[in-house]
Design a protein around this nucleic acid. Structure first.
Lengths: 245, 245
DNA sequence: GTTAGTCCAATTGTTGGACAATAACAAAGC
DNA sequence: GCTTTGTTATTGTCCAACAATTGGACTAAC
């Protein structure tokens, strides 16, 4: 092979240039969140390209949640953690991630959440946790409600932890665990035992006791895996690729 | 405020229908990774829409990495963790994530990596770690090399852990830490101390001793924060939004 | 002054057709 | 066999158009 005298000059397609430019402008806060973008035609003339090209550029960004249609205007917005989580989930599913893998990570993130929550939880969130536990006490029979309440409780804790990186990382996993939650709710390790764990965790958080909070959370997550296995599911198999939104 | 009795009836734009359909087909493995999509015109007729519309749908997907241009063909591909990490980084930056937040998460993920690596590391990766340490021994003077080698070492460990969820979560943080690495390399806590830590961690992994590996990693990460602070940076301020690719 | 009804201009979603550039493929030459 | 040279298919980009929807502006009614 001859030595490459010149490096392949790559011309990035125009639509990509457009989306990159927009992205930069957003990340550098030249356009602030909540602002509306100019009209497509306006952008087209600014960039000196055709409207179709601009549109492709916009579509490119839309997926990530940096811009969003609101009525007819294009609003600059910061992607919700939910959305990013959703995308990460898809990637993990495509890679046949197993329950075990997810659980190992959950096993460190949730206790961390609990610890931080014990330090940082606002009164508001503590109240909402209390409310959650109260409701759960009355819903011990209904599996579906139980799943929803369980998830909510953990979300509260994650929020209380006051750490965005944590919230985001959790989110990606949480969505994939959803099918697992349902499965393990039907096993023996459920209902009352779940509620008890929540109560212990909550008490520790309320008492501003990070160590205990983390410790109980750890036990709780171990229980979760037990439930999964008792339900007859194989932790080393890929999680269900049930792709509901 | 009045309660919303009806939910906004939304008619999804055609380009979104297209991208959703493609996405489903990919997630459900009807189109396998590596396959090429039909031509735009072909897709257009299949969906019964105009080529422009198909294009917008494709752009929508391209961003996430589910499809990729290779030459002129559209290849279905699974997004690299690097890409997803990059996107997560952008979201976190937009939300002014602080060093402290990132570090708290890193503080649990890295030890977990080390533990798992001690259990699962392949011979190949152990060799590469050894090599890395060897090179680092000779590069103690050069800060830039040191940063690169440090990062590489941690990546090896994450890979050795054999856990995709972990790799992905780490990736998002890692990219944001990059500027921090450079900063803390200039502080006192560097060079030799860094190398020593790596050696300890490596030894533990090689000895298949998860506890020690995790413990040393924990110390190592604590050191990292120390270096950041010694360098005069405020851990509670947002990390640099230096948006290099 | 606020609410509801009517109208208009602006903008979007979508279409059809066009064309140059080039990647992919096939044929010809060594 | 392997290069080199056409050919062709497909992409990236543009232009022009149109119906549907939206956001206002303007009016009338309360």
């Amino acid at each position: 092979m001859d030595k490459p005298l010149f490096n392949r000059l790559e011309k990035t397609p125009a639509y990509k240039v457009v989306s990159d430019a927009l992205e930069q402008a957003i990340l550098q806060r030249q356009i602030k969140t909540g602002d509306a973008l100019p009209t497509e035609e306006n952008l087209a003339t600014q960039f000196g390209v055709n409207r179709s090209t601009v549109r492709e550029g916009i579509r490119h960004m839309e997926q990530t949640g940096f811009v969003q249609r609101k009525g007819k205007k294009l609003i600059v917005s910061r992607p919700s953690y939910d959305l990013v989580g959703h995308q990460m989930s898809k990637v993990l599913i495509l890679n046949d991630v197993t329950f075990e893998e997810l659980w190992q990570v959950k096993m460190v993130l949730e206790p961390l959440s609990a610890q931080l929550a014990a330090t940082n939880a606002s009164d508001d969130l503590i109240n909402r946790m209390a409310k959650n536990i109260e409701v759960m006490t009355k819903a011990l029979e209904n599996e579906e409600d139980l799943v929803a309440l369980d998830i909510e409780f953990h979300v509260f804790i994650a929020e209380a932890a006051n750490n965005q990186a944590l919230v985001m990382a959790r989110e990606a996993l949480a969505q994939l665990f959803y099918p697992a939650y349902q499965a393990s709710m039907f096993s023996e390790v459920s209902g009352q035992r779940l509620l008890d764990a929540h109560k212990h965790i909550f008490k520790a958080i309320k008492n501003r006791d990070p160590v205990t909070a983390g410790e109980w959370m750890r036990k709780h997550i171990i229980d979760f895996k037990r439930g999964y296995e008792i339900a007859g599911l194989d932790a080393n198999k890929p999680v269900s690729n049930d792709t509901r939104t």
